[in-house]
Structure formats: C-alpha cells, structure tokens
Design a protein around this nucleic acid. Structure first.
Lengths: 146, 146
DNA sequence: TTATAAAAGGACAGCAGGGTCCTTTTATGA
DNA sequence: TCATAAAAGGACCCTGCTGTCCTTTTATAA
C-alpha cells in the first residue's frame, strides 16, 4: 500500500495535468480542494514534487503548478520513488532482511509475483495515462461527481 | 505491505509450529531470539494472538506457546485480520473513499488484480504450509543459517 | 513602484505504530 | 508450601508520518 502522501501526490498531479490540458495552472488552494486533501499538507507535497523536478511551478500573480516541456510521461514509479523511496518493490513480504532467490523465505516466490506485477503497473502507468482515462470519462478523481 | 507487527506474528507462529512438531513449547525469550524480533514487543504480539485464540499458551513452569487441537491450518489471512484488520484488501490504491467497479479510480482495474492475488495467497497459505517448506529445507526463517 | 497574489520554506503539533518496562497472575516442581 | 518460571497486562516512551501555521521570497498587474 502506498503512503497517504504518495496518494495525494498522484491525485494532485493528475489534477494539474487535466487543468494544464485546459490551458490552466491551478494553485495549491484549488488543487487541495479538488483532490480532497488538506491544504497545507498538499502545499508541502507539491513543493517536494517541484524540488525533484517532477513538476514545475510559477510564483507570484497568475502563478501555479504545471508540467513543462521536459515533464511529459511521468510514471507513477518516479512519484513513488520521490515520495517514499522504492523499498516496497524490494522488501521481503515476510520481513526477512536477506531474502532472495537463493535464500528464500517461505512466501518468496508467491510474494514476488504480486510485488512484480505492482511494479509493472507503476512503471507503465503515467500521470498522463491516468488523466486520459478521467478525461474520457472512464474513471473519476474524486468521490462526489461534480 | 504488511505491518511489522504482522510480520513478527507470522514468523513467531511459524517458529512455534516448528517447535511444536518437535514436541516442544517455546517461550517468549526463545521465540524472539529465533525470529530476530524485540523480546517485549514479541510478548505483546503473542498475547494478542492468544487472546484471539489463534494460539494457545500455558503459564508457569514448563509453560510456553503452542497450537491446540482446534488450532490447525491457520491461514495468513486470519493473522493479518487480527493484527491489522483487512483494510488492505479493500482500500483503493489511489486513496479514493468510494472507488468501486461502478465508480472506478483510474487505477482500479489493474490494482484490483494485484490486491486480489495477494488476497488469494494469504487465504491459501497457512502457518502449517509455510512451516512445511522450512522443515523440508525449501525456505528459511531467518537470515543467519544456524 | 507598489500592492497583491502566489509558491517556498521553516518550525512545530498530533497521532498511530512500534517498542520498553515493571507489576501481577498462574502454574509447577522441589 | 514455597521458590521459581513462565505468560498476562498496564503504563509508558519514541519515532516517523501526517498535518498546521507563520514568515519569506518572487512575480505580476495596476
């Protein structure tokens, strides 16, 4: 399971992408409201994302968050990596420090399959692919349908 | 990912099962040492497990932990359920409160597959099946091979 | 050039999970 | 029957993630 901050991050980025496609640059207040996340905490998360250059921002009047030309196709993996590290893709499901193919815990083989397929998903899916689905009406970003 | 306490719980129960098969009833100190977990914390966890009747215990001299006649085939699911609830099998990977087949988040379909296959594993695998593997030498319980 | 709107940043508060310690209860073997 | 070995239980501490608040910096529009 992903950390809450990572979930917020992904939802925030999807919202930014959707707005960018409309030619807009949303700010913290708007983003937090739309993804149903606490405002100050969202600000912190967006800060982290821009510091790591997954996202761009403009200060001052008319500012806000947006993806620049080098920031297309942002995989969920990159976001997870920045927000909480990639431990969840390596760690043993059984909690053993050294568990691997040669020295497996009794869950190793089966757990690996699950972990790897999750890894495949987050490598393949991007903020853009998720946003596409929402734009097409195939999926939703929040509970209440506005 | 499972909580640390759940991991300790599973490892502890496997150790108890292995010892029970040898006709022994290990105590907290021994269990904690063998599964490489903090002693006092292990005691708390074992207490929880016996309180929920997943495990039996005997106080006083010659006491220790063991499985009684009604406690065979303990699935990992039951342990997870007792230790941390089963939220991880229901929650949306995207963090949405109401995400379901009718109102899916953009990760819903793919995440469901992963989550469900993890669920299948923990329903199928038991303390006994894991212990079997260790007994047969197909898997290990701890880092250092004693 | 100045008021204002926005992000950036630092300090700190709250809480749950992880973990410890000490006391109480219970059983048993000498 | 009593010393001892063991689990049970309660109170508490610590750390990291979640979350807030306030100040600073920066850009822009008037």
């Amino acid at each position: 399971m992903l950390a809450k901050s990572t979930e917020y991050a992904i939802r925030a980025l999807v919202y930014v992408q959707l707005k960018n496609w409309e030619g807009k640059r949303p700010g913290v207040v708007e983003i937090a409201r739309e993804i149903e996340a606490p405002e100050a905490f969202s600000a912190k998360i967006l800060q982290t994302l821009t510091r790591h250059q997954l996202l761009d921002s403009a200060k001052g009047r008319g500012g806000g968050f947006f993806f620049n030309d080098e920031q297309t196709e942002l995989s969920l993996y990159k976001i997870i990596h920045v927000m909480e590290g990639d431990g969840c893709f390596h760690r043993c499901g059984f909690g053993l420090k050294s568990c691997n193919n040669e020295n497996p815990c009794p869950l190793h083989e089966q757990y690996k399959v699950v972990r790897d397929s999750f890894y495949d998903i987050v490598r393949k899916e991007t903020i853009q692919s998720l946003s596409e689905k929402i734009k097409k009406g195939e999926a939703v970003l929040k509970r209440s349908i506005t």
